[in-house]
Structures are given as structure tokens and as C-alpha cells.
């Protein structure tokens, strides 16, 4: 299929702008952007805007993490939430909060540590990275980390804990700073993901450090995932839905896939959050729940369609 990246980018940008406008103006309090009173300004600036920014950047980060996991592991269904990376980050963040509550940035540091531990366990148990065994081990790690977390916090289910409703400028600040750094870096090294399309033996004969390239992509993906988990919580399936959709629209070149994923990930998460906020007003359904409802069938669709093929979309 001939891809038309310019049309895809343009359409997505327009859709994103419409969605942002909708998310800003719609809700329990209707806001008209051209005629703001003090109350509306407060709702807009201190409640909706940080929430929207948190959703946009988190979605972008998780989508790019999905791109890199899939490229580096050569596995079309590798997703940080399925692989247990998000659950590891979440558990360690909780433990960090209990052990060293006064440590500055403890949430981020422990979440990153947790993401790394989960990832290293994954690699340790499945050195050859067989696609399906890797996913099964990820599922097991996910269940294990989530189970341990439930022991610490028996009254809170992991999905209901995830909400952008509590996002404020102070909670969003670190996410934005770390997210922008991570995404900028991702855009710079996006071409490296292309190299891993050919076998390791061939790459080595080109003088390339395959290990260096693979680990750079994976560590950045762990960083992006852990940062979102520390700030917002576990958001499932973005890292699998968005890379597939991106490849469908802009082709398989990661120099196109990664920037498109930034926009598409931002769109998907803000859409999920906005739908969850609007459909049962004044109550809310969390973005994680909406994503699970969309993502589950999407994953089944991919598996049924591919029958084991990698990266097709």
C-alpha cells in the first residue's frame, strides 16, 4: 500500500487540535474560550490544561516506548504494560514512597529502578527473546508485580488508581520536563530502530555495535514508561495500538513512525481521558479503563491477523 505521510500528519494534527479544544471546553463546567470569567479561567488553566498536557505527553511517551520495544525486541506485540515494565515501575514507586518518602524525586527514581528490574528479569529469563515466550514471561511478571502491589494496597485496584483528574501544574512539571527530554532523544535515535530490521549477524559485519543500539532503544523505552508510570500510573495498550496504527499510516520507516507515534499517542490518550470524563458526567471513567476496553480487542485483532508474522500492519 502506498503511504501518504503528509496527509496522515495533517489529518492527525487537525484531529488533535479539535480534540484539545473539545477537552478544554467540554465537561461539568462548559467553557467558552472567547468569553472567560474568573471561574472559567481557573477551571481552564488550573484543572483542564494540566490534565490535558499530562495526557498528551504521557500518551506520546508510551507510544514511543512501544515503538522502541517492538523494534528492539523484534516483536510486534511488545508493549510496556504487557511486558510487565509498567507494573515493575509502579511497584517500586510504591516501595520507594514507603521507604524513603522524603527523598526528592523518589517516585521517578524508584519507578525507573522498577522498570529496569522488570526489564532485566524479562531478559534474564528469556535470553533468546523468542517472541511468544517473551510475552508470556512479561504477562507473568506483570501479574507478579501487580499482585505484590495489591498486598501493599489491598483497597485500590491498579486501574482505578490511574486518573488524570488529580493532575496539577506541580505534578505535571516533572512529567513534562522528563517527557520532553526523553521524546527529543527518541526522535534523534529513531533511525537506529531501522537498523534492527536486519539480522544481528549482518549488522555486525557492517561494523555496528548491535548491543549498543538495542540497549539504547530499550533503556530509553524503559525510561519513558517508568516516568509515565511514576506520574500517572499504568496505562495499558497505548504502546501496542499506536505503533501499529502509525505503521499503517506512514509506513515502516521509524524516522516517520516515531514522530507520528508522538502525535498519535498524545491523541489516543487524550481521547480516552476525554471520553471517560464526558460520557458519565459528573462521574468519570478512567483513561486506563477506556484503553483496556479498546486495547484488548485490538490486541486480539493483531494476533488473529498476523498469526505470528512480525511487524505487519
Amino acid at each position: 500500500m502506498k503511504k501518504h505521510p503528509v496527509w496522515a500528519y495533517s489529518s492527525l494534527l487537525v484531529a488533535l487540535l479539535v480534540l484539545i479544544t473539545l477537552a478544554l471546553t467540554q465537561g461539568a463546567t462548559k467553557v467558552t474560550l472567547t468569553a472567560l470569567d474568573a471561574g472559567q479561567f481557573n477551571t481552564l488553566f488550573n484543572i483542564r490544561l494540566p490534565r490535558i498536557i499530562a495526557a498528551l505527553i504521557s500518551g506520546a511517551m508510551l507510544a514511543v516506548a512501544g515503538d522502541f520495544f517492538q523494534a528492539a525486541l523484534r516483536n510486534a506485540i511488545a508493549d510496556p504494560s504487557i511486558l510487565g515494565i509498567s507494573a515493575g515501575a509502579s511497584l517500586f514507586q510504591l516501595i520507594g514512597g514507603l521507604l524513603l518518602p522524603t527523598l526528592l524525586f523518589n517516585k521517578f527514581i524508584f519507578a525507573l529502578l522498577g522498570g529496569l528490574v522488570a526489564f532485566l528479569l524479562l531478559i534474564l529469563f528469556q535470553k533468546k527473546m523468542d517472541p511468544y515466550r517473551l510475552i508470556l514471561i512479561g504477562v507473568a511478571l506483570n501479574a507478579m508485580f501487580s499482585g505484590i502491589q495489591q498486598i501493599f494496597t489491598p483497597t485500590t485496584s491498579s486501574s482505578s488508581a490511574v486518573s488524570f483528574a488529580t493532575s496539577t501544574w506541580s505534578t505535571v512539571l516533572f512529567l513534562v520536563v522528563l517527557g520532553i527530554i526523553g521524546l527529543m532523544l527518541a526522535l534523534v535515535i529513531a533511525p537506529w530502530a531501522n537498523y534492527l530490521k536486519i539480522g544481528d549477524a549482518q549488522l555486525k559485519t557492517l561494523g555496528l555495535s548491535v548491543t549498543g543500539v538495542r540497549w539504547s532503544l530499550l533503556l530509553l523505552a524503559v525510561f519513558l514508561t517508568s516516568t509515565v508510570t511514576a506520574s500517572v500510573g499504568i496505562l495499558p495498550f497505548i504502546g501496542i495500538i499506536v505503533p501499529h496504527v502509525s505503521r499503517y499510516f506512514v509506513g515502516h520507516d521509524y524516522r516517520q513512525v516515531v514522530p507520528f507515534s508522538v502525535l498519535a499517542g498524545a491523541f489516543l490518550l487524550l481521547l480516552s481521558d476525554t471520553i471517560g470524563r464526558l460520557i458519565v458526567m459528573p462521574n468519570e471513567i478512567t483513561a486506563a479503563t477506556i484503553l483496556a476496553v479498546i486495547g484488548g480487542p485490538f490486541l486480539i485483532f493483531i494476533l488473529a491477523r498476523q498469526g505470528g508474522r512480525r511487524h505487519a500492519s
Partner: peptide, 12 residues
């Protein structure tokens, strides 16, 4: 080096 079986994991 040109291998006997050149592996390609994704479209390019």
C-alpha cells in the same frame, strides 16, 4: 559479507 539467508524482520 553476503549471507546465505539474509534476515529481514520488518519492511524496508
Amino acid at each position: 559479507v553476503v549471507h546465505q539467508h539474509n534476515q529481514l524482520y520488518d519492511d524496508i
